[in-house]
Design a binder for these strands. Structure first.
Length: 423
RNA sequence: GGAGAGAUGGGUGAGUGGCUUAAACCAACAGUUUGCUAAACUGUCGUAGGGGAAACCUUACCGGGGGUUCGAAUCCCCCUCUCUCCGCCA
């Protein structure tokens, strides 16, 4: 949620930035500012009445002690009158606050000034490309065929146990999952992140904190009896560690990494690019999260991008980095880089990571703040990125590294798998 | 699932209707002293809203929501959570 003070003081800046998302925000912002100033007036009015009532209440106490009952009763009448008036004001103020909040909830984050204009994924900017696209022979197999040829993943079995999008990994397929998870975690720890294993279900407050609620309610699995949500990403529980927290400046940046399964309903995306590992309801992901001083959060974003590039390089996968355009960026992000690997048999770029700076958008909802040098409390910046999401990495590894003798494991991964070849 | 006890500031913890402007201690921060560290001493030390150029003034907040009262951390009702014991169970 954008902060009111930012919108008040930088109205035109906000309108300009939001226009990159193809949003005409000025009518809504004017409405918000109008309601806000009305709220302030009512607040002042109410405070004055309450101040007088507080004073009278104190006097009544003294008067009763001195047995001046008559005067005390006179004051009582006046106080009752004041209280009645404050109650109306209170109701009005609450209404105004609710209205402002519900309007603000509909506004996405303001894009960073470097975000390109654009409407769809086609308008994203390719900022970096690495590695050569492998040329596979005619008879090369897609990963779902390789998965069944070598007994790595059983999609049908998952279908039986749960449903579509819940694969069962078996044998070397299972070991490969575990190897990738350990590799990603170790690399992150080497880069200074500290590991956490968070809960896989979160309560409503956490969902609101990172912005999945109320925006993407339908995308999360919901355990209705207890009103818990299955996490769509480790970002939710890990960032919420710092909900309602005031950090010291010297504690920043905070760097956390966590592996979790992720659960996504993917409502509305059936039938489109869902074959094999391309889109699942449950998948594994290692997530990096940082909480940063606003002064250097964009340096940190670059550092996170470099970290993920390093992972893909070590896995010897051809990849490219995209800077997302305004129209394709997530609701809560100010700047997002996507990482895509090339899956050689499908002949497609697959998104395997999304790295974003949310600036204060999440921190505002989370009430995640720090005390700066001058002793002032201000909102921190939150950032996160996948490092990495497993299924599409596996898809690319299987397809790109297939040979007549089997599938070759990249050398950096061999210490984790314990085998060099899947055959 | 059953029974009981609780929830007060960064922490411990006092506070049963006005003397609370939430005590006291600890932690933290700044300073004095010191060759350095420690100790001691002095001071500062919640969050949010409103007013003000500022000093400052003011309002709300003692798990959450409602109520009683001129006045509530304190009394009443509802909810949530935590702890202890019992039952079930990895």
């Amino acid at each position: 949620m954008l902060t009111l003070s930012y919108l008040r003081e930088n109205t035109n800046d906000a309108i300009e930035r939001l226009s990159k998302r193809n949003i005409e925000a000025s009518p809504l912002l004017n409405k918000v500012l109008e309601l806000d100033s009305e709220r302030k007036n009512k607040q002042t009015e109410m405070d004055n009445l309450l101040a007088e009532a507080n004073l009278l209440a104190k006097q009544i106490g003294l008067l009763i002690k001195e047995n001046k009952t008559q005067e005390a009763n006179k004051n009582k009448e006046r106080t009752i009158l004041l209280k009645n008036n404050t109650q109306e004001l209170k109701t009005k103020i609450t209404e105004l606050e609710e209205e402002i909040k519900s309007l603000l909830y509909t506004l996405p984050n303001t894009p960073h000034h470097s975000v390109p204009k654009g409407k769809t994924a086609d308008d994203n900017e390719i900022v970096f490309t690495s590695g050569n696209v492998p040329q596979l022979p005619e008879e090369a197999l897609a990963h779902w065929d390789l998965a069944s040829k070598y007994n790595l993943i059983d999609f049908e079995l998952g279908n039986k146990i749960t449903g579509a999008g819940f694969p069962v990994y078996t044998g070397k397929g299972a070991k490969l999952q575990r190897a990738l998870i350990s590799f990603f975690l170790d690399e992150a720890i080497k880069a200074g992140y500290s590991e956490v294993i968070p809960p896989l279900m979160v309560n409503e407050a956490s969902g609101y904190g990172t912005g999945q609620l109320p925006d993407k309610e339908g995308q999360m699995y919901h355990a209705a009896t207890d009103n818990f949500y299955l996490i769509p990403t480790a970002e939710v529980p890990i960032t919420n560690i710092y909900r309602d927290v005031i950090l010291k400046e010297n504690e920043l940046p905070i760097k956390k990494v966590g592996y979790t399964p992720c659960f996504r309903r993917e409502a509305g995306s059936y039938g489109k690019d869902v074959r094999g590992l391309n889109r699942l309801h449950q998948f594994d992901k290692v997530e990096i999260v940082q909480i940063a001083n606003p002064e250097n959060s964009y340096t940190i974003l670059q550092e996170m991008v470099e970290h993920v590039k390093g992972l893909l390089t070590k896995l010897e996968l051809p990849f490219r980095t995209l800077k997302l355009c305004g129209g394709d960026m997530g609701f809560t992000s100010a700047l997002t880089y996507d990482m895509e690997v090339f899956s050689a048999a499908q002949k497609k770029w697959l998104e395997v990571s999304s790295i974003s700076n949310f600036e204060t958008f999440q921190a505002n909802r989370l009430k995640l703040r720090f005390k700066d040098k001058t002793g002032k409390t201000q909102l921190a910046h939150t950032l996160n990125g996948s490092a990495l999401a497993l299924p599409r990495i596996v898809a690319a590894l299987l397809e790109n590294n297939q040979t007549p003798n089997g599938i070759k494991i990249p050398s950096h991964l061999v210490p984790y798998t314990g085998f060099e070849l899947i055959n």
